[in-house]
Amino acid sequence: MASQGTKRSYEQMETDGERQNATEIRASVGKMIDGIGRFYIQMCTELKLSDYEGRLIQNSLTIERMVLSAFDERRNKYLEEHPSAGKDPKKTGGPIYKRVDRKWMRELVLYDKEEIRRIWRQANNGDDATAGLTHMMIWHSNLNDTTYQRTRALVRTGMDPRMCSLMQGSTLPRRSGAAGAAVKGVGTMVMELIRMIKRGINDRNFWRGENGRKTRSAYERMCNILKGKFQTAAQRAMMDQVRESRNPGNAEIEDLIFLARSALILRGSVAHKSCLPACVYGPAVASGYDFEKEGYSLVGIDPFKLLQNSQVYSLIRPNENPAHKSQLVWMACNSAAFEDLRVLSFIRGTKVSPRGKLSTRGVQIASNENMDAMESSTLELRSRYWAIRTRSGGNTNQQRASAGQISVQPAFSVQRNLPFDKPTIMAAFTGNTEGRTSDMRAEIIRMMEGAKPEEMSFQGRGVFELSDERAANPIVPSFDMSNEGSYFFGDNAEEYDN
């Protein structure tokens, strides 16, 4: 993207840094990872977990959730003011799984939030270390993106479920800051804005008074975040219109849905970061690795190297396929839920299948599930090659597409044709070009129609051997075009429920 120079890199967003050079960025990201790792080690000690239990991804998720809940100030305040039966607002906890007599047992633990905050700050040299908290939120978000298709949420806001490739980060909490905003897809931002506008339509006082002023500035800020994701002048001009509207209503909703559809071809720039579970960072720190000293990046080879040398386990339900569970977590670790499966298959070195073909449910185990038949197995999170994460949407291309997802959002900077089903997408653009945004709409449609099938995206960008740390010898991959490109292809993934 041309304006790259004016933006802070995501590592800076990730670490609240002012302008830093590459070495400083690597050190501050490393410091953040160190903090998460030290916190995780301490929690495993508190909970008396064995090494194996500490490497269980379900335990990692519970521990991450506990610290996120302990620092969720708004919710904590709300819980104190609106006490609900049987919930102690000062405590947080969740299921911890232990191996007892050759069987997995679930144990519900409860801790004072104050105590968890103390352990977290102690692991982070006394700081609140917001960057580390956001990092864990993005890992949870990436896992949700890989596990669930947001059909219901899309339909509720009037969008087409086939636009799911635009929904990265749709389950990120509001408090995820600049680093969170960077990884949100165009569809996620559109959905947040539509929800806001709908509230304004239904509630006369939404934009009024002292609160209304705050609401208005939040609305304009979200519009600017979305505008910054678009790469064409016409899309940005249309966002200006939406932002400046005196009284946002149905016309703005129409414009936003139009823009979301246009992003299936004229893709937005959305950041991709490899955020790993805390149970990967903990053992690495415990083994003596100093992330701050060595430096770390979320968008280069580092996460690949770390996963190459990590042992992570997962509980497996009786009829689940461990290899499929591994694929789910591998995609989440690489922030690749909406990437082209052919690119992923090449990088991973084994075939990556669409969601609907995987015999696996989510990673988390519900409290009512029976533990008797639970097994555990090693997650295979290694890769054959590594590639640089991208934040450009890439230019655009036609490809055989599917009944489910009709476009992709690249996660890796790797040369390819970008699949999208042009006739299906263009069919949504018939007729409606009147109104105050008509010239911009016409211009956007013209650009979409001009998108050429034979153009290559990320020209000359390749993948790298894991021994090639400096990215000196790019390998331009070859793809098996007979395979499906979309992950949520004609899909039956479970729906995400809060």
Rank of each mutant, 00 (worst) to 15 (best):
T151D: 08
C223W: 12
E455H: 12
G431L: 13
S413F: 10
G394R: 10
S60Y: 05
S170T: 09
L47V: 15
M13I: 12
D372R: 04
K422I: 02
E375D: 15
A27C: 01
L56G: 11
D16N: 11
D491N: 14
R436G: 04
R55T: 07
Q415F: 12
T134Y: 03
M167N: 10
W330P: 03
N370E: 07
N250L: 06
S165N: 15
Q415D: 00
D439Q: 11
R19A: 05
D112W: 07
G177P: 00
H272M: 04
L344D: 07
Y296W: 05
E469G: 11
L328N: 13
R384Q: 04
V312M: 15
M481A: 04
T146R: 01
A366T: 11
L154K: 09
E254G: 10
S367W: 11
V155L: 06
M159S: 05
A260G: 11
G282I: 08
T157H: 02
S69K: 02
V155Y: 04
P283D: 09
E454V: 15
L381Y: 01
P83A: 13
I25A: 01
Y10R: 00
R199H: 11
A181R: 08
I36Y: 00
K229G: 09
L418D: 00
Y289H: 15
R74P: 01
R446T: 14
P95E: 03
E220C: 04
T430P: 14
L79P: 08
T134V: 14
G228T: 14
I41F: 13
G435I: 05
E254M: 12
S407M: 13
L79H: 04
S310Y: 02
P318R: 09
W120Q: 09
N492F: 02
N309A: 14
M456L: 12
G169N: 10
N124C: 12
L307C: 15
G185I: 02
Q12S: 12
T424K: 01
G212Y: 02
V352H: 02
R162L: 05
N498S: 09
N395I: 02
S376D: 03
F39E: 09
A123L: 10
L341C: 12
G37R: 01
I253E: 11
G300E: 08
S245K: 03
N321R: 15
E454S: 09
M159Q: 07
T45A: 08
G288F: 13
S310N: 07
Q409S: 14
K198R: 04
W330N: 04
T23E: 01
S60N: 14
K91N: 08
A22E: 05
I316L: 15
S60H: 00
R361K: 11
E369K: 08
A178I: 09
M163P: 00
M1W: 12
C279V: 13
R213I: 08
S269N: 07
G282V: 09
N21T: 12
Y111K: 01
N250K: 09
G132S: 15
L381T: 15
N247H: 15
Q149P: 04
R150V: 01
A403N: 10
K31H: 04
N202C: 13
V183M: 07
N142D: 05
K198I: 04
H140L: 06
R38P: 12
N319G: 08
R174V: 04
A153L: 07
R150Y: 10
P453V: 07
V329F: 11
P477L: 00
Y10L: 14
T188H: 09
V242M: 15
P477R: 00
G132C: 07
S245P: 15
S367G: 12
R470A: 00
L307H: 05
S326L: 07
D290H: 11
G30R: 05
V280D: 00
C44G: 12
V329Y: 02
E495N: 15
E18D: 14
G300N: 09
K214N: 13
E469N: 06
Q12V: 05
I116S: 01
R195E: 12
E434A: 12
S310R: 02
Y385N: 11
S376E: 02
H135Y: 08
F458M: 02
K48R: 04
M448G: 04
L47E: 07
T146H: 04
G404Y: 06
A493I: 02
I197P: 02
M43G: 05
Y281K: 06
T390I: 00
T6G: 00
D88K: 01
K103L: 11
F464Q: 02
S438D: 04
R195V: 06
Y487H: 13
N144L: 02
D203S: 07
Y385R: 11
T360S: 12
S3N: 14
M13T: 02
E254L: 05
E14F: 10
E210C: 11
V414I: 12
A472R: 09
E14Q: 10
L108Q: 14
R391K: 14
R38F: 09
V29R: 10
N205L: 04
S438W: 04
S217I: 14
L298D: 11
P354D: 10
S274H: 00
D127G: 12
I63Q: 07
K422F: 12
Q398S: 01
N432M: 12
W330D: 15
K214F: 09
K48F: 06
G393V: 08
N483W: 00
N321E: 02
T146Y: 07
S314P: 06
S367P: 00
I257S: 01
S60D: 05
R152W: 06
A129G: 15
T146S: 15
Q398R: 15
S482H: 03
A181M: 15
P95Y: 07
K113W: 11
S165D: 04
L259Q: 07
K422S: 11
Q399A: 11
A218N: 04
R361L: 03
N368G: 15
E53D: 13
A233R: 01
N395E: 06
L172C: 12
A2Q: 00
V408I: 07
D127V: 14
N319L: 07
G94Y: 06
D240M: 04
E339L: 04
T424H: 12
S353D: 02
G30P: 04
L276G: 05
Q327M: 09
K77T: 11
I406L: 09
G212R: 03
G209L: 07
I365F: 11
T360L: 08
D145K: 11
S245M: 01
L110R: 08
A366F: 05
N432Y: 08
S335M: 02
I33P: 01
S335W: 02
N125S: 13
V29A: 14
A271E: 09
S457V: 02
G394N: 10
N473L: 11
N498I: 14
A278Q: 01
Y40D: 14
N250H: 12
I197V: 13
G349Q: 12
W139L: 14
E53W: 13
N247M: 03
M374L: 14
R317D: 11
S467N: 11
A411Y: 00
V29L: 03
R118T: 11
Q308H: 15
R204M: 10
Q409T: 15
P173N: 08
V363F: 12
M222C: 13
E220Q: 14
R246L: 02
I96F: 12
S402Q: 13
S262P: 01
E244D: 15
L193A: 11
S84M: 12
F479P: 09
A403G: 08
S297K: 09
E210M: 11
S486K: 04
G212K: 13
I475F: 01
Y496D: 06
A337D: 05
E107R: 04
E64H: 10
Q308F: 13
M447K: 06
G228L: 12
L172F: 07
M222N: 15
M426C: 15
I41V: 11
G35K: 08
G185N: 07
L56A: 10
V109M: 07
M222F: 13
P474I: 03
I347G: 05
P474G: 00
N498G: 08
A373Q: 02
C275E: 04
G187Y: 12
T62M: 01
Y281C: 03
M447P: 03
L143K: 08
E320T: 11
G268I: 13
E53K: 00
G485F: 15
E484H: 00
V476P: 12
I41T: 14
M196V: 13
H82C: 14
E320Q: 05
L133V: 11
G54T: 14
H140C: 09
E252R: 07
E443M: 12
D302P: 15
R208S: 05
S345M: 06
G460S: 14
R342H: 06
L256Q: 14
E449H: 01
W104M: 03
G187A: 14
L68E: 07
T396G: 10
G212T: 04
E81Q: 02
I445H: 04
N483D: 08
R382T: 02
I347F: 13
N492Y: 03
I36S: 10
S310F: 05
D51E: 09
N125W: 04
H82Y: 13
R416C: 11
L133F: 05
G431N: 08
R221A: 03
G435V: 05
V343Q: 04
R26I: 04
A179E: 12
G132T: 03
R213D: 09
S262I: 06
